[in-house]
Structures are given as structure tokens and as C-alpha cells.
Simulated assay, not measured.
Amino acid sequence: MRIDDMSIDQLLELNQHICQRIDELQEQETLHAISQLRVGMKVTFQGREGPVLGIVTKINRKSVIVLGDGRKQYKVSPELLRPLLDVK
């Protein structure tokens, strides 16, 4: 069936299914990103004013608290964080 041939009710139902699937995929991405993080891990992310380096201090269900340079705390989506490798 073509979208152009669908009624408003059919389109609303399709929209609901699409939104549910998007939510499921975003939740999977968040869970995967969180599973890669640990408290004390060094991370980086793109802040409003450029790259931020910091340390993970707390991991919540949908966000991560990062202690950045200058002792500033950031609440960040886990998908935006990139772990830093220790170079020795």
C-alpha cells in the first residue's frame, strides 16, 4: 500500500509504529554506550565551546555525569562520550 493511498487513521497508526521503533533503537544505542563506560574512565565529548576532557563520576540510566576541566560538572548523553585511551 502506498502512503498516498492511506487514510489519516492509517497514517497515524503507521506514525505510532515508526515512533516506537525509533525509541527502541535509541534505547539500544544508549544501553550499548553506557555498557562501554565505567566510573573513573577518562572521556571526551564536544561541548558548546569545543572539546571537553573529563572523568566519568556517575552513570545514570540515560545520562552520565562528567567532571571536566576546571572542576565543572556536565550531564551528558552517553552516546556523545568517547573513551580516551591511557597513553604510557
Rank of each mutant, 00 (worst) to 15 (best):
R82I: 09
D23S: 09
Q20W: 08
I18W: 06
P78H: 04
M6Y: 07
V39Q: 07
M1H: 10
H17K: 14
P83F: 03
Q26S: 08
R2P: 04
D5A: 15
P83S: 01
K58C: 05
I59N: 04
D69W: 06
K72W: 07
D86A: 10
P83N: 02
K72I: 14
M6K: 13
K72S: 09
V66T: 06
Q20M: 12
L84C: 13
K58S: 10
Q28V: 09
P83T: 04
G70P: 07
I22V: 12
V87E: 14
D5Y: 09
V64P: 01
R61Y: 08
A33M: 04
D5R: 13
L67V: 02
A33D: 03
G50Q: 02
K42F: 09
C19W: 05
K62I: 01
M1C: 07
M41N: 04
E13H: 11
P78V: 03
M41L: 12
R71K: 13
E13N: 12
Q36F: 05
K75S: 15
F45K: 02
D5E: 15
N15G: 09
M1S: 14
G47R: 03
P83Y: 02
D23W: 03
Q46E: 10
R2C: 06
L31C: 12
L67P: 01
S77A: 12
G47H: 07
S7C: 05
D69S: 12
V43H: 04
S77K: 14
R2F: 07
V39H: 05
L84K: 14
L25K: 14
L84P: 06
G50K: 01
K42D: 09
V52P: 01
P78G: 02
E29K: 15
P51L: 11
L12Q: 15
H32R: 11
S7F: 04
K75D: 13
I55L: 06
P51T: 02
E27I: 05
V64L: 00
I3Q: 11
L53E: 09
V56F: 00
L25G: 05
M1D: 08
V52L: 02
Q36G: 06
D9E: 15
A33F: 01
F45E: 02
D86V: 05
V43Q: 02
V56E: 03
E79G: 08
S63G: 02
T44L: 07
R38M: 06
Q10I: 00
L37V: 00
G70H: 04
L11A: 08
A33S: 12
F45N: 00
R38P: 00
A33K: 03
D4F: 11
L81Y: 00
D5V: 10
I22N: 05
R71N: 14
L31M: 14
T30A: 05
E79K: 11
R2M: 07
P83R: 01
Q26V: 03
D9L: 15
V87D: 12
I65G: 03
V43G: 06
G50R: 01
T30N: 10
M41C: 04
H17P: 01
P83I: 03
K88W: 09
S7W: 06
V76I: 10
L81S: 00
I65K: 14
Q73D: 10
